[in-house]
Amino acid sequence: MMLDVKNVSIAFRLSADRVTSLKEYALRAVTGKLRYKEFLALKDISFSVKKGETFGIIGKNGAGKSTLLKVVSGILKPTTGSVCANGSIVPMLELGAGFDMDLTGRENIYLNGAILGYEEAFLNSKYDEIVDFSELGQFIDEPIRNYSSGMMARLAFSIAAVVQPDILIVDEILGVGDSDFQKKSKDRMLELMGGGTTVLFVSHSIEQIQEMCSRVLWIDHGKVVMLGGAEKVCTAYLSNQ
């Protein structure tokens, strides 16, 4: 078993009552108005993913898909329940996290790579591949504040796409940049997902889910609606809409 999610619930304190200054806190603590409204973003979710499996998650906007991915990747800690992962996890949730505008493309490759958990030797060996894939050429030694948004997205994608994780978490298959690069990046992503790694895949495109996943989890309002074979769950999901 690569990934085991057991009875995960997550509760947020609603921002209406969030206290952000000491004075306000003291005032409320004294007057006894320190109350919180709890909101359960995830309620008692359990599932497990086998090695090499591509596991899909579907649901409407606000169903809790992204929260679930954040819990699995360790960014959020579940209020109750546990997540057990055997191996390295690379979340492709946000590309270019931690980019520093004042640093050059080259420096950002190392910084962003380190943030994603790559090792130094790995980055050194993959450096040329990243630069080639991003098609940035000579601009790689320019500070990235001078980059266009397309160049930045290309660089970010190229760094993320060299991973060889045990578990890959994908939130929508991204196509970035111009149409040529979009095709190239989509192909690269499909290649990564088909390469035998364990994949956790979230998408709004039911066709993609049906095509790639063996099992699918359908969540709504933070609760599990259905868990089972891709065909069965997708049919139920479509007929529900």
Partner: peptide, 17 residues
């Protein structure tokens, strides 16, 4: 490696320009 990168970022960013 990560700490090394973050420290070198802080240092470079501080004196850049």
């Amino acid at each position: 490696f990560l700490i090394k990168q973050l420290v070198s970022r802080d240092f470079k960013a501080k004196y850049k320009r």
